[in-house]
Design a protein around this nucleic acid. Structure first.
Lengths: 351, 351
DNA sequence: GTGAAAGCGCTAACAC
DNA sequence: GTGTTAGCGCTTTCAC
């Protein structure tokens, strides 16, 4: 109990309001929470004082008292990535609408930080946890992290955008398979057959799923699968797309279209293509996932798969709240992606 | 006091630890906070139990008890804008390093939401508030908001990246004037004289300051000021840059360089220029502010002014913490911008 | 060094 | 309806 070192004379409490209104603290609380009917007269009196002193109830005390903080923790990989930023803002909105506050922490791709922040969020007694990016994206879940999540889930429900094998956490994720289908249908329809997959890592769930479906689709269309067209030893950024495309172009591998692992990678890919004197989409079509504003900023604008971020965020939050309030929820829900066709994709110049 | 509807058997408390360790709760607290020396033997016993039960102290209770939450509230305009995202992550890091948690809320450009979120953050009893974007960017501060901030500041120090006239809140902001100088020096050095200013609004502090300095510099260089070169009836996004540049180009206004209000606007400007069959930088040089990854994604890459986001965030947080702990701080601090030259700017094609 | 006890500000039985 | 009271889980005097 330190003396407040800054400006502060103590903040007003319900006791102060109660005293001045000539009622009990409980009544003030009742007025504030609107839980039980209070006589109009007293109610007015309290409300007037609340107004007068600009009284704001202490959310900490409230949370401590009813053992729910009305807060949802969000563990995001990195909000500097517009994909996560979109998703976060969507969640924030949905949560706010439901009377919840969100507490965001960025894991920045480090498993260590991820664990640390998980603990921090739990200390804040968030009522539920939503995680996007990081360990939950992995094809094979990290055992140590799984154990921590399992311990957390004894008291705090967890919702993830990927999966966490060995835990019972709810999953709300993009239908990656469908996302790839949209792109492939689009490209095949334009006459493309030599279609490259560029960027990302195979040990990432979504990336892996897309690859599987890619091979299936080729087979369905009787197009031979050429491993040289799949450059998956990369990352999810521009540099990686740039590097990988450079290599493919320099090896004279022939293809008429490339599916970038996301808009960032697409940007790098586009640069590489331009530097090799080729045109988009005349020589090579480029399409990608996420439909962040990068897709709109590029010249030509990118054909990209959109994820309905609002709906995505809403589902994540709804699921979290269902869990908090003890309602049953499905183990896995999916968000249906949608293709946004722009100028970066066109008809194939040869069969 | 609701019964926990989700999985939860009650969480462990220091009382449980104390009982099993055969010490008092106070001692457990002492071990946890490392405040006073505790006999090694007891300390070990407690620590072992903490480990055993994976005990995490309730941050809410702790905050309530010592009347500081070790939390800094951040009111940001919109983290989907990479400028704010960078700044937020920088603040989050700095805060974390200092043992603080950050609580983010996005105002999304609505003054109403801004006020609401301000109250929400105060209810959470944040120890300090940092605001970037929104009302604090305005040339003329909103009276109503000023009043609210003043009320808040009785108990909670506020740091902003702009200004808030009529309040005593601390300011940490980019040296906008210097930022413009960097760009002008660069362009003038390349032989440009007909330099356009595109995007943004004059009632935004930073934008306004840049305009003032722009005129001064022209004067110093004996270059006549042409109002037709200043298109400031816009926004801070791509569409706006696109529109404004379209208009200038269609009006056949002649210029060899344009200073975009930010990277987003620059992207729109570049598209407009390309659509008019002009080349960058051969025909027109384009430069901008913020140096977000949009600058690196564009072809050609953008020459842009960087803000040392890490340092910026660190200063904001340091100032907030100084205020929390009752130390004196300067009213205004600035962050020195730095020019990053890329391919979008080149020598003027005529004098 | 350490325990007992009060208090942080609120909510929720429980009486009346 | 409304006041009284007992927590929520921690920190911090204050004794010893």
């Amino acid at each position: 109990m330190q003396p407040p070192k800054n400006g502060g004379n103590k903040l007003i409490t319900i006791y102060d309001i109660a005293r001045e209104a000539g009622v009990s603290p409980a009544t003030v609380s009742r007025v504030l929470t609107n839980s039980v009917r209070v006589r109009a007269e007293k109610r007015e009196k309290v409300l007037k004082l609340v107004e007068k002193y600009n009284f704001r109830p202490n959310a900490l005390a409230r949370s401590l008292s009813d053992t729910r903080s009305k807060t949802i923790g969000i563990l995001a990989a990195d909000v500097r990535n517009p994909y996560y930023a979109e998703l976060f803002v969507a969640c924030e909105q949905a949560a706010r609408d439901a009377g919840y506050t969100v507490l965001l922490a960025n894991t920045l791709g480090e498993i260590q930080r991820e664990q640390y922040l998980l603990e921090k969020l739990l200390e804040q007694r968030v009522d539920a946890l939503i995680q996007f990016g990081g360990s939950v994206d992995a094809l094979q879940s990290d055992g140590d992290y799984v154990e921590r999540i399992n311990r957390a889930m004894v008291h705090t429900p967890v919702v993830v955008t990927g999966k966490l094998e060995g835990t019972d956490c709810r999953m709300v994720r993009i239908d990656s398979t469908r996302a790839l289908e949209l792109l492939m249908d689009h490209l095949l329809g334009l006459g493309h057959e030599r279609i490259a997959l560029v960027g990302g890592r195979m040990n990432v769930l979504a990336t892996n799923m897309k690859f599987k479906r890619y091979k299936e689709i080729l087979e369905e269309h009787k197009i031979p699968y050429d491993p040289a067209l799949v450059a998956r030893d990369g990352e999810y950024n521009m540099e990686s797309g740039y590097q990988l495309m450079n290599e493919m172009l320099e090896q004279k591998i022939s293809f008429t279209a490339v599916v970038a692992v996301n808009d960032f990678a697409a940007a790098g890919i586009m640069r590489s293509i331009a530097e090799h004197g080729l045109r988009i989409p005349e020589d090579i079509s480029v399409v990608s996932y996420d439909n962040t504003y990068i897709a709109q900023v590029m010249i030509p604008r990118l054909t990209s798969v959109d994820y309905h971020y609002e709906e995505f965020g809403q589902k994540l939050v709804d699921t979290a709240i269902d869990l908090i309030e003890g309602r049953e929820t499905t183990s896995l829900q999916t968000v249906t992606p949608q293709l946004v066709v722009r100028e970066s994709s066109g008809v194939a110049w040869r069969k």
